[in-house]
């Protein structure tokens, strides 16, 4: 029991950090599109959202790297739950990798040419030439994928909460029995 593989400290920290950044990105997206009426604040939220997205992208790359080398904790649930869990995690990794990329692509293609500075400092280069149709298509995809991420996150958190008693939930939060 005690020598079962567990999540490493780096994996736990990167998971928590990634979760906070993704939540902040989702909240800022909803705020800047639907809640805030002040144009100055809305513009600033877009800039904050861009930084959050790039940080989320860096974090997911780090986490994929960690996961690649790690021996994962063995599943302890019924087969159907494991299948659901694996599916959810693959979707999560896919979405949190692709969504920031579509965001980066759309601000690159945008005719607005708003300079992107990560944390207000580091300039982010454009990955695509300016194109209005591409920008509009990417913007739509980015928004839909964002909503999809929200839905998959609900599934992920529900699954975690359903496994409070068997220690699965705790295993990502603290060292020890997992």
């Amino acid at each position: 029991m005690s020598d079962r593989p567990r999540w490493s400290r780096a994996q736990r920290w990167s998971h928590q950090l990634s979760g906070a950044v993704i939540l902040a990105a989702l909240v800022s997206a909803i705020a800047m599109n639907r809640l805030v009426s002040d144009q100055g604040l809305r513009f600033t939220l877009y800039q904050v959202h861009k930084t959050l997205g790039i940080v989320a992208l860096v974090l997911v790359l780090w986490r994929i790297g960690l996961r690649w080398r790690a021996v994962l904790p063995e599943p302890i649930s019924p087969a159907w739950q494991n299948a659901l869990s694996i599916g959810t995690h693959r979707l999560l990794y896919g979405l949190i990798f692709v969504i920031p990329l579509t965001g980066w692509a759309l601000i690159s293609a945008s005719p607005l040419k708003i300079p992107t500075r990560i944390f207000g400092l580091l300039p982010l280069p454009d990955m695509l030439p300016t194109s209005l149709p591409l920008y509009l298509a990417l913007l739509k995809a980015h928004a839909w994928l964002g909503w999809a991420l929200g839905a998959v996150l609900v599934l992920h958190v529900s699954g975690a909460l359903a496994h409070i008693r068997d220690g699965t939930f705790a295993s990502i939060w603290r060292e020890g029995k997992g």
């Binding site: 002040d38 144009q39 100055g40 513009f43 600033t44 800039q47 708003i114 300079p115």
Partner: peptide
């Protein structure tokens, strides 16, 4: 002045 430092700077 567009009512915010970041939008005004842009």
């Amino acid at each position: 002045d567009a009512g915010g430092s970041s939008i005004t700077a842009y």
